[in-house]
Computed example of a mutant assay.
Amino acid sequence: MAVAMPSRAMLLAAGLGRRMRPLTETLPKPLLTLQRRSLLDRALDRLAAAGVSEVVVNAHWHADQIATRLAAREAREPGHPRITLRREASLLDTGGAVRAALAEGLLPAEAPFFIVNADSVWLDGPIPVLHRLAQAFDPAREDSLMLLTRGAFVTGSASPRGDFALDPLGIPRRPKEREIVPYLYAGVQIATAALVADMPAGPFSLNLAWDRALEAGRLRGLVHDSLWFHFTRPLDLPDAEKMLRDAANLVPTT
């Protein structure tokens, strides 16, 4: 059951980026650049192209730099989309950040919304990722539909054992002890407020919310059909640059 394309999203940009040091000692990870465009702008570009009109961006590490970049974007492209910066004096982690935005009315209590990691970069397949998620999401039976990707289409994987296995109906499960599973969370999902409903205020990971949804049978996965990039070490950036150049060279010309 498809839902209307969400008009609002949460962009998670508050992390410390420790694995990308020394690059992130004086720069927040979302402001690292890939092909001369910041990861933050790339994520916002995807959301804008999908018709998302309001985005909440959380910030903590070098939050002033995030604020400056967002102000420059707003000056250049006013209202495309409208951005609310939510500074975190102390880190709330991914789940806590979403819950706090919902508590302040910055995300819809009833309608679905996107949650996107600011450091995830992907190429769209035949149908754009965000449209695929909206088309496949059924809030009557799930609280979150997450984008998963196979390790073979990844650079810079942070989880060599994988994050999830997936059955033919798209129901994920966590790996068993010593098991290697094929799918990684790609940093993009569509969800409703029910995903973090009743979770305590304060810092917590979205993994806790996913585990609760798994137990209730209300979590599903959708497999990505193109390249995905995640950056866990400085050398991942030039690797991704090369992969993007190679991918561009494969596009036929007319």
Rank of each mutant, 00 (worst) to 15 (best):
W61G: 00
H62Y: 11
A63Y: 01
A63W: 10
D64C: 09
Q65R: 07
Q65G: 02
Q65S: 03
A67V: 06
T68H: 15
R69D: 12
R69G: 00
L70E: 03
L70M: 05
L70P: 10
A71Y: 04
A71H: 04
A71Q: 11
A71S: 11
A71N: 05
A71T: 10
A72P: 01
A72I: 02
R73G: 11
R73F: 02
E74L: 00
A75V: 06
A75I: 08
R76C: 08
E77K: 11
E77L: 13
G79D: 08
G79S: 00
H80S: 13
H80K: 15
P81T: 00
P81Y: 01
L85R: 10
L85V: 04
R86W: 05
R87S: 00
R87T: 09
E88N: 06
A89M: 07
S90E: 13
S90D: 04
S90Q: 07
L91A: 13
L91F: 15
L92M: 10
L92Y: 04
L92R: 08
D93A: 07
T94M: 07
T94V: 02
G95V: 15
G95D: 14
A97L: 05
A97G: 07
V98M: 14
V98F: 03
V98H: 04
R99M: 09
A100Q: 07
A100I: 01
A100C: 05
A101D: 09
A101I: 15
L102T: 01
E104I: 07
G105I: 14
G105P: 09
L106V: 04
L107C: 05
L107N: 09
P108H: 09
A109M: 08
E110F: 02
E110W: 03
E110A: 13
A111Q: 15
F113T: 13
F113K: 13
F114H: 10
I115P: 00
I115C: 14
V116P: 02
